[in-house]
């Protein structure tokens, strides 16, 4: 029982990060129909920039703020320099562009930063808390808290603000949104910035637990995408559920079946979901018009 609780706690912690990644995918996909394979690099940047800002002697709060703002800026640049010029390109081209962006950002990161593995202490220290036989890192609670805060803030943003509703309208129908006066290019830029900032936040929260280096991005992006597909691509609520579910499945696999094949879970989930219910748990059924 204590084992199960332990697995659930670590699963939910990692799952919260997957949920944030899946949310990042969702926001960009809704605004632009692009699946951004560079999403994992935002997580890497969030962790790495914080590491180097701390090493420069800045306090954690300021370092985190710099990491989020810089990463959001890189997200906006990615949209302006690589995605917008390729508007209307076939899906294969867009896949190669975003994977190219991912490799490019890694290439820059290994030069600007280094190739070492880094971590920094958790926000509330690293002394584990004991709870019903399971040990919980205080940083786990920060990760879960951070993810919850992001989801609540975004829900408020999408339902209570004019800009948020403009984003939803654009996601529904870009042409119709443009016709009622919404600046859809601005919405795309905003979506990339927002998505990158969320990725950076996930990265800087999880680094004390899972460590970071310049090449952690691609596996994370793939898992975040698996989570997004599990929940139904394009649905923020689905991203949350898909992320948590994937994290828990991984932790249970590592605990009860094989820790070597823990990373296989995400890909089995992807393939399974695609075969059985391609629209995911909460996605809308779509029919293609010819």
């Amino acid at each position: 029982m204590a084992d199960l609780l332990q697995f659930l706690v670590s699963g939910i912690t990692v799952g919260a990060v997957y949920a944030l990644l899946a949310l990042g995918f969702t926001i960009i996909f809704n605004a632009s129909d692009v699946v951004n394979f560079a999403q994992g690099e935002f997580v890497m940047l969030g962790g790495m920039i914080t590491v180097f800002a701390l090493a420069a002697g800045l306090p954690l709060g300021l370092a985190a703020l710099i990491a989020i703002v810089l990463t959001a800026g890189i997200g906006v640049l990615l949209n302006k320099l690589a995605i917008e010029p390729a508007r209307g390109a076939p899906v294969v081209s867009l896949i190669i562009i975003t994977i190219g962006a991912s490799i490019f950002i890694q290439g820059v990161a290994q030069i600007v930063f280094d190739k070492q593995i880094h971590r920094y202490p958790g926000i509330s220290g690293d002394a584990p808390l004991r709870f019903a036989g399971a040990t919980i890192l205080p940083q786990s609670l920060w990760v879960i808290f951070g993810a919850t805060a992001v989801f609540v803030a975004l829900w408020l943003f999408f339902t209570r603000t004019l800009t948020g509703r403009a984003v939803l309208a654009t996601a529904n129908n870009r042409l119709a949104a443009a016709l009622v006066g919404i600046n859809t290019r601005y919405i795309m830029t905003l979506s990339f910035g927002l998505s990158a900032a969320i990725g950076a936040l996930a990265g800087l929260l999880i680094t004390p637990i899972t460590l970071t280096s310049y090449d952690v991005g691609i596996p994370l992006a793939l898992k975040g995408f698996a989570a997004a597909m599990l929940g139904g691509l394009g649905n923020p609520f689905g991203a949350l559920v898909g992320g948590l579910l994937l994290g828990v499945l991984e932790a249970l696999t590592a605990g009860y079946i094989s820790s070597q094949y823990k990373d296989a879970v995400a890909f089995i989930v992807i393939i399974g979901v695609l075969f059985v219910m391609p629209q995911g748990l909460f996605g809308r059924k779509s029919t293609e018009r010819v």
């Binding site: 390729a86 081209s93 490799i103 290994q110």
Partner: peptide, 20 residues
Amino acid sequence: HEYEKLLLGAVMILVMIFLR
């Protein structure tokens, strides 16, 4: 060698945008 990844990524993006 240090710049290999950077160059590969840049080539991928540029070719897809300019020489589809």
